[in-house]
Design a protein around this nucleic acid. Structure first.
Lengths: 230, 230
DNA sequence: TTTACAACTGACCATCGGTCATTTACATTC
DNA sequence: GAATGTAAATGACCGATGGTCAGTTGTAAA
């Protein structure tokens, strides 16, 4: 039934993570290595073996800290979202005008290329290989933060009707994904745009378009949802 | 240098595509098989071998018709875009109000789940393995149709300033991608939403949200781009 | 020093997209 | 109808990848 496996003879000199703090540090090291590699080449082009090599761990060791490659991705995305919501809540400590609020959102998102890059591939990653528990944990985190910040928008942004904040965050999410797809296309597409002047229309400016759309979406308070679709 | 390869002895009874028409028919068969499989399980979960099996061809034969798996995807997406632009142009044969135009866009997009599903993963696919020629051909097609339909929007939709049509199509593209990501999440996410009532906020209605956003974006004519960002 | 546990390792596995030497269907030529 | 040349079709093979697990060994407790 069982075949004995060949094993290498390298001694594996690395110190082990035994207690909780050491494990947390190791987890951090993995996340940092992955983040640097994703920055450089994008999630699609980074293999688990590379992340392991950069952390100076064996590939199998990564799987003691993250159940799948996708779970590692979601852990990074969670961190990025956390920072975004923290900044949002901080910006809404005191009442602000709608223009100032839009200004915060545009500047803050534009200053978070990592969040935007990860968001842009989130859908595809989730379609791949994520177990229910991982998905539940991630979505619960997102829902809790969105609800809290949504309520904060309702109370702190002047001229916004109650209940609109959370919906606005959903819209913002959609805009961030969609606009990022166009503002930061794949390298081949960018190459194509450079190669053919007729494709210049695809070369859009993320903060400019996001501001234009958010301004229009927030211009008149949404009293009630339009009922054109019966 | 060369090793002789083992070959099977199955006789391969299939009729060959020799002239142009036969080749076109075979290409169609491959596209149809791929479309059915993508419908059932999504692009991520369909392998080239499966598409080949469904078409009753060997895997290698597919590569006589499409240079990569991604090129096959882009061919399908091109067809879907073509149908969308055709319907859009037809709807703008005669002048329409902004409300009627929004109504067309919402209904038409909602009736094209295939286009939406393919658009949603387009960015990821393009990041994978597409050569410059394939990307150029695809983007040129998109640019040409967007420019033509954009100009048509300028002249046929009442109350829309000149030059706004093409920009609106870019916005629509962003909205379609972003909203679809949320309205049709990955199976695990849908499972998570069903499992936890607190996640109900993620269960959004695509046509409803698209209509709400488009209505706001088109409400006041965009005289000039706002210059809040200096 | 011995022992028990579990962190760590990397050879191995299944699967995938893609290649190419070989086979052979088919049109053309005689 | 037989012989021939061309290229459509094939599937064994390749390299790379995400993931597994029997075996190794660092570390704390006894």
């Amino acid at each position: 039934m069982h075949r004995t496996r060949m094993h290498g003879n390298r001694p594996a000199v690395r110190r082990r993570a035994v207690n909780g703090e050491q494990k947390a540090r190791r987890r951090r090291a993995i996340l940092d290595a992955a983040l640097e590699l994703f920055d450089a080449r994008g999630f699609e082009r980074v293999s688990v073996a590379e992340v392991a090599a950069r952390t100076r761990l064996a590939k199998g060791t990564l799987y003691l800290y993250f159940p799948t490659r996708e779970a590692l991705f979601l852990a990074l995305l969670t961190e990025q979202f956390e920072a975004f919501f923290d900044a949002l809540d901080a910006a809404l400590e005191r009442p602000v005008s709608r223009d100032a609020f839009v200004d915060h959102l545009v500047r803050d998102l534009h200053a978070r290329p990592r969040l935007l890059r990860l968001i842009a591939v989130m859908h595809t990653v989730l379609e791949r290989n994520v177990d229910l528990d991982t998905a539940l944990e991630f979505k619960r985190f997102l829902a809790a933060r969105a609800q809290a910040s949504g309520a904060r928008i309702d109370t702190r942004v002047r001229g916004v009707p109650t209940g609109f904040g959370q919906r606005l965050l959903l819209w913002l999410h959609a805009l961030a994904i969609g606009l990022h797809h166009m503002a930061e296309p794949a390298p081949v597409v960018r190459q194509a745009i450079r190669a053919d002047p007729r494709l210049a229309a695809f070369d859009i400016d993320f903060p400019h378009e996001l501001r234009a759309m958010l301004t229009r979406l927030l211009r008149a308070p949404a009293r009630s949802t339009s009922r054109l679709d019966g």
